[in-house]
Design a protein around this nucleic acid. Structure first.
Lengths: 226, 226
DNA sequence: TTGCCAACCTATCACTGATTGGCTATCACC
DNA sequence: GGTGATAGCCAATCAGTGATAGGTTGGCAA
């Protein structure tokens, strides 16, 4: 009862595990896949997985990092092909949403976390350098991709200060919000998807334009206070 | 080894269970609380929980519905006290975000779902009447609260057509996006919270204003196409 | 040939949510 | 005062989860 080939090339088993996991995730949803199912799909015992990955989460994390690396490359190609910053923001936002809808499990793992182990209640970021990439590789990969937004926003706003960070994070929040809701609540009676995406992207454009610096060095007129 | 009082008033045990669960959720995060912990906190055996609730999720669902009912009431009070629709939108959005940050576990359960049992891959809402409230009481409660947004938007836009739905859902997406990110990624180096909230709310205002109907019956000028 | 080592397997652990079957205090009814 | 029904409870147990321990095997380098 021994496997015919006992010593596959190094790294191949690892790749087989990742492929099997990816397929099972897509079929049943990441949360409904067990280590035993992955092992069976590969043709090895469940404990053998731990020779290649330190934990079950590590498998998901690696798939997540790979998926977002692909998105990052897509972003870079877009920025290289399109030079108008407004168009760039639109393309990036749209690609981001589409990516989330095409890879809902990877998006979930990166941006809709359920693991709160490392997040005690009331804990928030207090400033300074916290190496979240080490504890959350999925988030880090996703953010590396999204950081492509910064350049176009700087160009559109004509500024490169901390307000750009606020704008980028707000735009990110809106795009993430739509993506995560569409993923998480597929049965909800959503408006036509294209119109929704258009509206969310328009929100981002409006924010960027409202905070553009008209005269160099002069703060832009703020939106009328509510 | 019998309990001193064997027959507490009907419904009291149920309430004790909900209170204990709520406290444990706040202490350790909803995902890190087991049925045995809840039972121990109440002082009963773990199987006894199932005499009051059909499943562990049902406990969380009920807490969720109650929390959002409180938010709904808060919304209604705000709408009654403030008449300016622009101010109303601002107050509702801000209260929504604050609610999510104050009750992260309830917000998670309602809007950051991990249960994908009822959502096969690629499945999306196809229109028509789907009774999502029956399968997702948390979502239903959250949406009843958020539906308060519709009125102010109708007033601000001077229209009551399907575009209002698009606008409301887009605004909801942006507010939800910020809320869920702040909850899910507390360690991320966020910009100053108040500025972030202000930016997201401003995005909503800008969208509402850009789609306002200026002349009755005449479509508003669209944003310049990207 | 020898020795090492990575990959593997069987057996098992602690823990999860959930079910079963029996016990008992209480209450409505006679 | 019985008497049966029932709601609430508990011990025992189930299947399934991720993870660990320890022994075994094949292949490669010295």
């Amino acid at each position: 009862m021994v496997a015919p080939i006992r010593r596959p090339p190094p790294g191949e088993r690892r790749e087989q595990i990742l492929n099997a996991a990816l397929r099972l995730f897509a079929e049943r949803g990441a949360g409904n896949v067990t280590t035993r199912q992955i092992a069976e799909a590969v043709g090895i015992s469940q404990p053998s997985l731990y020779a290649h990955f330190p934990s079950a989460d590590a498998i998901a994390d690696e798939l997540c990092v790979r998926a977002f690396a692909a998105l990052e490359a897509r972003f870079a190609a877009m920025l290289a092909k399109e030079s108008d910053p407004r168009q760039q923001i639109d393309l990036l936002g749209r690609a981001y949403i589409e990516f989330g809808l095409e890879h809902p499990d990877m998006y979930r793992i990166a941006f809709m976390p359920t693991r709160v182990d490392y997040c005690p209640p009331g804990m928030v970021f207090e400033g300074g350098a916290f190496d979240f990439a080490a504890t959350d590789p999925g988030l880090a990969a996703g953010l590396r991709a999204f950081s492509a937004l910064r350049g176009p926003i700087v160009q559109m706003c004509g500024r490169d200060d901390d307000e750009v960070v606020v704008i980028a994070q707000a735009v990110w929040a809106s795009v993430h919000g739509l993506t995560s809701l569409l993923i998480g609540k597929p049965f909800f009676p959503w408006a036509e998807r294209e119109r929704l995406i258009r509206a969310v992207l328009d929100m981002g454009h409006a924010l960027v334009e409202s905070r553009r610096v008209v005269d160099a060095g002069v703060a832009p007129e703020p939106l009328p206070a509510a």
